[in-house]
Amino acid sequence: MKNINILIVGVGGQGTLLTSRVLGSLASKLGYDAKVSEVHGMAQRGGSVVTHVRFGDRIFSPLIEEGRADILLSFEKMEALRWIHYLKEDGMLIVNDQAIDPMPVITGNAKYPDDILNRLINRISNVFIINAQEIAKEIGNIRVSNSVLMGVLAQHMNIKKEDWEEVLSSIVPPKTIKENLKAFKIGYNTKLGCEEGARLNDVLE
């Protein structure tokens, strides 16, 4: 199998690490070589965070290079734009339609750009946009929005839905398994518009 590079970005505290743990476990369960790289410490405190997930037959570097990510999964829309140069030419972007103001915006020293989604669509042909926290709120647990995003991601990867569900259930807190599986299912079944319509699993296989 060709190596797959997934860059997960967001804001410290949004739960990006849980998603990378699920992907890492999934990859090793399926017998792939896998590397996951994350940053701890100061970078986590509400700052911009990034996790690199790579798996395939043989992985050397734990990091994805600029211009080489197959998929960019962004938990926040401005962060998608910040990391967009990591996507390869025909890469896919999955973005959560949520805005979190950074401190320079809160203090009035900068403005949160109001045309982010348009800029993303103009630059990338494979864009999927979903409002995951709205779905999570409906389910009744705001914290399961990352499972909604994983559901969308799962639509575009050649990994069985059952494998995702099994690994997800083994990693989330036991009390929240039901809510997380529901969130995953909604994400998985939501048909999102994509400008070019190409499915990444066709590209990857």
Binding site: G12, G46, R82, H85
Partner: peptide, 17 residues
């Protein structure tokens, strides 16, 4: 590889919780 252009955006520094 061909590099995509980086975007100019407000920084997101770490903050006190």
């Amino acid at each position: 590889v061909n590099m995509k252009q980086k975007e100019e955006l407000p920084n997101r520094p770490p903050v006190l919780c």
